[in-house]
Every structure is written in C-alpha cells, then in structure tokens.
Simulated scan of single mutants.
Amino acid sequence: MMKKIRVLVVDDSALVRSLLTEIINRQPDMECVGAANDPLIAREMIRDLDPDVITLDVEMPRMDGIDFLGRLMRLRPMPVVMISTMTAQGAEVTMRALELGAVDFVAKPRIGLASGLKDLASEIVDKVRVAAVAKFRRPMSPVLTAPGSTVVPAAAVSAARPTNTLIGRLSTEKMICIGASTGGTEAIKEILVHMPADSPAIVITQHMPPGFTTSFAARLNSLCQITVKEAVNGERILPGHAYIAPGGKQFRINRSGANYVAVVEDAEPVNRHRPSVEVLFLSCAEMVGRNAYGIMLTGMGNDGARAMREMHDKGSYNYVQDEASCVVFGMPREAIAHGAADEVLPLDKIAAALLAKLGASGDRLHNRI
C-alpha cells in the first residue's frame, strides 16, 4: 500500500484550516494528520504527529509564521509550504520565508477566500507533493547588518571574479539568461551576488505569481553590485543590470538595431507557466545566439529544457545546476536529457565558472585589438 504524505496545516483561520484539510484529504496520496491554529499548538503537534510537510500561514497570533519557521529550521528542519497573502508586505515576508528554508509558497486570494482556495487546490497539492520529495536546503548565512536586512560580505562577492579580466569590454554584446522554479529564489541570489558591476546584462524567469516579483527584485537589488529590477516592456536591456520577468506576464528579448529590448506582455501560459522559461530562452536563442550564456537552476517540471537546447544549437554556452545542490532536480534533469548542458555544476560553482568563461572571452578580445 502506498505511503501517504502526512500534512500538518497551520493557520489561524478556521475556514482556511477546514478548506486545506478537505483539499488534502481528497488526494489519494496524502492525508491531513492535524490542523493547528497557532505555532505553539503546532509545535506540540509536530512532535506528536511527525508530519512529512507543513503548510504554514505567514500571519498568526502569539508567534508569526516567520519566527516559527526560523525556530523550526534550527531545531527540526522539515519541508514547509507557506500560505502567503497577496499584499506587498505579504510578498516581502514570503521572500524572507524562502530565505529561511521554506520550499515554496501559495498566494492566498485577497477576496473570495473559499472559492479562491478551491481554485488553487491543484497548485496547493502539487507544491505539497514537491515539498515532500524536495531536498532540504539549509538556509545560507549572510552577514546581518540591521534588523531585517542582510548584506553579502564583500569578499564573497569578489571571490568568484577572476583577476585581470576584461568583462566590461564584452558587456554590451553578451547576455546571461537564467531560468528557475522551485528553490530558485535562493539559487538566483547565489548567482547574482557574485556578478561584478560590469557584468553583461542578465535576464531571468523565475516561476512566481503577480505581486511577488517586485519584492524579489528589490531584495536582490539590496544585496548585489549589479542593479536588479523587474523587466518593463520596451526598456533597453543594459549591462550591469538583471531583469526579472514580472509575475503573471511573459518576458522575452527583442532587438532594436544594435540594442536588446525587453518585451513584457499578457500572452498565454506556456508549459502551464506565465512567466515561462521556454518563452525567454527561445527569444534568447533567436536574438542573442552565440553571445548568450544559459543557466538552468532548480525547479519542478520541464519548462525551458527544449528552448535551452535551441540556445545550445545557436551557439550559447550553457550551465545546468547539478542534482546534489538542487532543491528539485526537475528542470535541470530535463535540460541535461535534451542535450542542452555544456557544464553541469554545483550551484556554488556556477558563477565562478561563468566569470572565468567571460574573462577568457575578454582576453581573446583583447588579443585581437
């Protein structure tokens, strides 16, 4: 008999607890073993019930979800799916939860809660299933500067950059293209904090709903030497900048003369995703070609794998995150299976390898001048 995924629901709303319990118990492969209305009760239930996955509300009485998550990850690390509110504050708190080690999150509708959660049922159970098999990632330990803020040590930022390179000479023609899903917010951060101010332009699709990419971009911008922002339709793609696909939109690259330009539009989902890595990577293959560097990071499914092979066939040099360092080895596995990878590396080696490659290209350029 198949072992069911044992889920503990933690939420201060009786309605949400009831709805989530019902959604989970309808699945043949999972069961809700308990529901707690605050973290202190949840702590006792975790000890008694030993769940496989927790769904955790962000805002609760007595102890908020973030404080509880931080303590849980220190004392009894386990897979957590956050249930977040679709507000600016909710998005910021959700980014913090992902930093602390939450596997993923579901954005709770602001109106029509009962019908909204039922509409999200398939997304909720999919994310619980992924969390149950996800590789647990202990949160990284950046240097704390002030309450609620972090910086990455300067030594860590500069460590990956090769000396005496000429990256700046290349930055207008080259482009770095990144795709990610589950576990990707922290993986993207690990790449971007090592990129120097004269980095080529970076374009990124991370599967994320509307409202959350603004907070994600702002958090990254506060940590990086490069400028990180949400992509805006029609803007020029510039060196020293990273552009993140806005949640709920498709993001691709176009050309206007010698310049790269962002296209952000209300197009249909691709591979069930909006934004989709497939859309971005296909445009990079067509518009950037051999001047592109592709990076496929942790994520569920196969979004972008075929397009990454297209990038490879057009001359792109591609890096794929290895299984050991992925939270979920779905999209990287598919990229490798499609023959899209030039190098398969641990997450903490990708930025250094990319910068060394860019440096070598700069040296070749210098030799021709």
Rank of each mutant, 00 (worst) to 15 (best):
residue 209 P to V: 00
residue 97 A to I: 03
residue 89 Q to H: 15
residue 273 H to E: 14
residue 3 K to S: 10
residue 249 K to A: 01
residue 175 M to L: 10
residue 253 I to Q: 01
residue 195 M to K: 00
residue 159 A to K: 10
residue 220 L to Y: 02
residue 169 R to S: 09
residue 366 H to W: 13
residue 45 M to L: 06
residue 294 G to D: 09
residue 25 N to L: 08
residue 281 F to E: 04
residue 203 V to C: 08
residue 225 Q to G: 01
residue 150 T to F: 14
residue 121 A to W: 06
residue 334 E to N: 09
residue 241 H to A: 03
residue 33 V to S: 02
residue 25 N to T: 00
residue 67 D to P: 08
residue 206 Q to V: 11
residue 40 L to D: 06
residue 168 G to S: 01
residue 223 L to Y: 12
residue 248 G to Y: 04
residue 237 I to R: 01
residue 240 G to L: 02
residue 271 N to C: 15
residue 46 I to L: 01
residue 210 P to M: 04
residue 99 E to I: 05
residue 100 L to R: 05
residue 286 E to W: 14
residue 238 L to D: 03
residue 42 A to H: 05
residue 55 T to D: 05
residue 96 R to G: 10
residue 359 G to S: 14
residue 328 V to S: 00
residue 187 A to M: 09
residue 17 R to C: 09
residue 231 A to T: 10
residue 254 N to T: 14
residue 221 N to G: 12
residue 318 N to E: 02
residue 346 P to S: 03
residue 203 V to M: 13
residue 284 C to I: 04
residue 345 L to S: 03
residue 311 M to F: 14
residue 338 H to W: 15
residue 230 E to M: 06
residue 21 T to L: 07
residue 278 E to K: 11
residue 200 P to K: 15
residue 200 P to M: 14
residue 227 T to S: 09
residue 2 M to K: 06
residue 19 L to T: 06
residue 73 M to G: 01
residue 108 K to T: 06
residue 355 L to V: 10
residue 276 S to T: 10
residue 290 R to I: 13
residue 276 S to R: 05
residue 130 V to E: 15
residue 343 E to T: 07
residue 20 L to N: 06
residue 320 V to Y: 05
residue 147 P to V: 03
residue 129 R to Y: 13
residue 170 L to Y: 12
residue 97 A to S: 00
residue 45 M to G: 03
residue 295 I to G: 01
residue 138 R to L: 02
residue 356 A to F: 10
residue 198 D to L: 08
residue 74 R to Y: 04
residue 269 P to G: 10
residue 299 G to H: 02
residue 301 G to S: 14
residue 270 V to P: 01
residue 242 A to W: 15
residue 219 R to E: 01
residue 336 I to A: 00
residue 120 L to V: 04
residue 155 A to F: 05
residue 332 P to I: 08
residue 228 V to Q: 05
residue 106 V to E: 07
residue 317 Y to E: 04
residue 150 T to Q: 12
residue 285 A to L: 08
residue 151 V to M: 11
residue 37 N to I: 14
residue 72 L to A: 01
residue 290 R to A: 01
residue 142 P to T: 02
residue 121 A to Q: 09
residue 107 A to Y: 13
residue 266 D to M: 08
residue 87 T to A: 05
residue 261 V to G: 00
residue 216 F to S: 06
residue 277 V to R: 06
residue 321 Q to E: 12
residue 191 I to K: 06
residue 339 G to R: 02
residue 190 E to S: 03
residue 107 A to K: 15
residue 138 R to G: 07
residue 291 N to F: 11
residue 94 T to S: 09
residue 121 A to G: 05
residue 140 M to E: 13
residue 53 V to N: 02
residue 123 E to V: 13
residue 84 S to R: 11
residue 65 G to P: 04
residue 139 P to D: 05
residue 109 P to A: 11
residue 215 S to I: 07
residue 359 G to Q: 12
residue 63 M to F: 14
residue 117 L to K: 09
residue 164 N to Q: 11
residue 350 I to W: 09
residue 65 G to Q: 15
residue 82 M to F: 12
residue 32 C to F: 08
residue 305 A to E: 11
residue 279 V to Y: 15
